[in-house]
């Protein structure tokens, strides 16, 4: 039985700035509706300035001005009770943070305080939410480190003494030590080498299955999603443009942007010319009218320039926001490369 853990409904979060009487508004998250189930890995892909970081800031309840929730709700259904990030008080959020809702951050070097030993950092993060002290606390931490395949003496080490992969495992350890129900992973492997990346991804997956929690995994690297996610959602210019089961997203995408992202991945054993998408991501302070992808879209017609396509259901768990989704061809096979991009 699958249940929903997180329901995002019509979420709009804008950066609203007012400098010297001039008001500027950046619509970083513009009407996103999605659900995340218990015990699944949901991958979010999107390029920089697509609003994906703003979106996960809202999910992580780390909203600071000038970012504001303008409309919609972000409802978690934790074991401790439901909570809506949009309306919750700071105290309510404090009660779930780290215990229920945690966050694996990107640069492990900037997460860990370089002047504190790892053990002290663990105390800072975990002692209060766990509510344990002395032997019980220590046993819990050691047990957790063992699960992460980290030796116990990392607790005595300073961050600079560890390799990049170990540091990233430590940050994963910090994020998961309280067995949270929902983990946000923001590009946790971008700075890592291929061998270590695979190891860290495997570890996240293992811990996720062990704890039965949900993970929202953010990266622009589609090959990571291919191996990690149960479902993938694509964010473009502040909107969710397509979401679906991972396999379908790769082999039968229903949005030209997804088709492009998949097609542009180079593969070993294949040297056919890869299409490159021209143009640049739109400016969210002044997004294009109609479908926001239309200036770069090979399939764009007049309708796309004026009317915003709704997120339609096109298959089981599969939704897309494209007027011409029926015409989108998967670009994976080299022979079909002329289909969409011509």
């Amino acid at each position: 039985m699958t249940q929903d853990l997180l329901k995002v409904d019509g979420l709009k979060a804008y950066y609203q700035m007012n400098y010297f009487g001039v008001t500027r508004e950046v619509r970083a998250v513009d009407d996103i509706t999605m659900t995340i189930r218990k015990n699944e890995v949901y991958g979010i892909a999107g390029e920089s300035s697509s609003g994906k970081t703003s979106f996960i800031k809202v999910l992580a309840a780390a909203i600071r001005p000038p970012l504001r929730i303008v409309a919609g709700s972000v409802k978690y259904d934790f074991k401790s009770g439901p909570i809506d990030v949009a309306t919750a008080s700071p105290a309510e959020i404090e009660a779930v943070r780290w215990r229920r809702l945690s966050y694996i951050m990107q640069g492990s070097m900037s997460v860990l305080n370089p002047l504190r030993r790892i053990g002290k950092t663990f105390e800072d993060f975990a002692m209060r939410p766990l509510g344990l002290t002395g032997e019980a606390y220590r046993a819990r931490i050691l047990n957790h480190l063992e699960r992460l395949k980290l030796p116990a003496d990392v607790l005595r080490a300073y961050p600079h003494e560890l390799s990049g992969g170990m540091r990233q495992r430590v940050t994963i350890g910090l994020a998961t030590v309280c067995h949270p129900e929902f983990v946000i992973a923001d590009e946790p492997t971008t700075a890592l080498d291929v061998v270590v990346q695979k190891e860290v991804l495997g570890l996240i997956r293992e811990i996720q299955q062990d704890m039965g929690s949900s993970v929202i995994f953010v990266t622009h690297d589609m090959s990571v999603h291919a191996n990690m996610a149960d479902r993938v959602g694509i964010i473009y210019a502040g909107r969710l443009v397509e979401e679906g089961p991972t396999r379908e997203m790769f082999f039968a995408p229903k949005h030209p942007y997804t088709a492009h992202l998949v097609a542009s991945l180079p593969r070993i054993g294949d040297t056919t010319q890869r299409p490159a998408l021209e143009g640049r991501p739109p400016n969210l302070a002044d997004p294009p009218k109609g479908c926001r992808f239309h200036p770069r879209c090979p399939l764009a017609v007049d309708k796309c320039r004026t009317e915003v396509p709704p997120l339609e259901t096109v298959g089981k768990d599969h939704r897309t926001a494209c007027w011409r989704w029926q015409d989108v061809q998967p670009l994976v096979s080299p022979h079909a490369a002329h289909g969409v991009m011509a």
Binding site: V194, V195, Q197, K198, E199, L201, G202, R205, M222, S223, V224, H225, A226, N227, M228, A229, D230, P245, T246, R247, M249, F250, F251, V262, L265, R267, I268
Partner: peptide, 20 residues
């Protein structure tokens, strides 16, 4: 060989194969 084996492939997308 290790490097090549660590490249994430999209061929088996959705299968969650991550063991090295």
């Amino acid at each position: 060989r290790l490097l090549k084996a660590s490249v994430l492939s999209t061929e088996d997308a959705g299968d969650g194969k991550l063991a090295t």
